[in-house]
Design a protein around this nucleic acid. Structure first.
Lengths: 180, 180, 180, 180
DNA sequence: GATGAATGAGTATTCATTCAT
DNA sequence: AATGAATGAATACTCATTCAT
């Protein structure tokens, strides 16, 4: 088993669960059964490790969106996007927890600034390219609205309301975006 | 000059700007021109100070929502709520930054858990009471959607997109909620 | 109820239970329902309070030993002294705990040095005056032995062995000192 | 040069001289020419360091008592034990100072509770095994008396009387325990 | 006599990072 | 590639003391 990969996997999980600032490298290393020196060896620093993790997450997002969807109508694409969003939100809370965390915290924002910009630009453009196919009017604003809505749902589902009615919300949203 | 109030004011500002974890008490005290011991004296601990701040913020939210609005139609209330939300989002970014921060970060969440629950329950009920007057069908889910949308907008405006089209989003949303 | 007396009583108890160094004045004041400023007002400082307490304890010891015992034989006096020692050791553990504590700890020793000397000189002389009446040979050494024995018993009973056979020890000692 | 051993040695000395509570780690580290972090690294905490020291002291006591003494009569063993006690009491005051300190102070007692119990049980049994060979009647009580006597002597010699007649006491005691 | 806000020096502890092996 | 001893700056917290009221 590759110690480097092991390290990344464990660190991702712990950073998501406990927050970056609140997760000492000592805990990461103990959990991953790895010596402290190894982090500096592979990633130079704690921030280096964070950037590597964030980068990989972005790569994942890009890959998913790069699947060819030319055989789908734009509305079908939107629905599929929503379906996969709600599916993953339930299945991999950690993933969203981690990303929300990184965005909101000033300290991590500073470290990841360029990577966050890169990723959010990609997401905005990917979304807009779908909306453009439906109607170019206000497509940028609508894309922003769309993204904000999903982020807000993730935020409220993960962090605020214990009995957030995720499924009903999902239905409501899908209905909204499939109506002409 | 009340040193306790001074302390709270400065701490609120600094926690919002730099994050709670990332703001040492030494900085808070120096900025507020106050000795370290005073925090212990008034709030017992850094967490105690945080709880006091969060509590006051909640009290503010409750006060604003307690203003009598019986002379307005529910849709008018909704629009007013949206107007004041967007107004404040632009005017007092710190306020939103601080609150998002507290919600998302695991460490602060643990400290504030009970207070967060209290506040979010209040907000949900206040929102639902308006939606109920329009149409009781799905009023709870719609309230959740409404709150999530606004949170998402705050999140994207403050933390992700530098050129977030706040005004256009505002218009779009108000239009959406004034349509029958 | 006199706040000063209240303060002394509570402080004695707490210092005995938790040790002097380990008992913050804040705890003393809260327990005694008294403000912090009052200690400085009455005793100048924490050390001042300690000295007052130690002084009172000495005064108690002196008083007990000042009772006229001219109608008793020296051996009777010795037995009575032993009886009262074992009686009090069981009844007022705190008293012995406190005094042992003060003697052994370097920090408190420094504060109480003169008072400790005064008291221990008194005790030695009071004991020697009894032994002298029995036999002046080695009376000083025997007095030291006698005191050391009792201190050792207190130490082992209070601080080391949970099932210290206090009563059997008492009988053994009394037998020893009543034998010709 | 082993920094860990250096640390233990210096700390033992300082804790004995100044008391545990009254010896800041800063002083220990400066004296030992070692960084503060090293204590956390090797012993986890100040209490951890204390436990390590106490443990080693116990180990020393056990080792000394484990020397084969089958070629000595029980009374010879008792005398040898007394001789070595008085010898060490004069030579290594620190050792006794430290141990008395730990026993008497509530704060350190709590930290060392299990280790103190272990050690005192061992000492009691080692002593009793000698007394048993002389006479099994009351051997437990006599052992307790014996230990208490020595502890009391150490206490009075080290902590109370400046001109404690140690040598005369020694002779008196040895005479007592060699008499049939 | 009595209060309690305010101070500030002091202390243990945490933790990312370095470096020799 | 991997270890872990060692560092030292940073940080929250403690607590006796002071002083205006």
């Amino acid at each position: 088993m590759d110690k480097k990969e092991q390290l990344i996997e464990i660190a991702t999980k712990l950073f998501a669960e406990r927050g970056f600032e609140n997760t000492p490298l000592s805990v990461v290393c103990e959990t991953a059964n790895v010596s402290k020196g190894l982090i500096s060896h592979h990633f130079k620093s704690k921030n280096g490790l964070l950037r590597e993790i964030f980068l990989r997450t972005t790569r994942l997002i890009v890959e998913i969106n790069s699947i060819d969807k030319t055989n789908q109508s734009p509305r079908e694409q939107l629905v599929e996007l929503l379906e996969s969003f709600f599916l993953q939100l339930e299945a991999d809370k950690m993933f969203f927890q981690f990303n929300l965390n990184m965005m909101v915290q000033p300290a991590t924002r500073d470290v990841l600034n360029d990577l966050i910009k890169e990723r959010s630009t990609f997401i905005l453009e990917a979304t807009k390219s779908i909306f453009d196919k439906i109607d170019t009017t206000d497509s940028l604003v609508k894309s922003h609205m769309f993204i904000a809505e999903l982020d807000g749902i993730a935020l409220n589902y993960l962090g605020i309301y214990e009995d957030f009615p995720l499924n009903q919300i999902k239905e409501l949203i899908i209905k909204k975006y499939t109506q002409r």
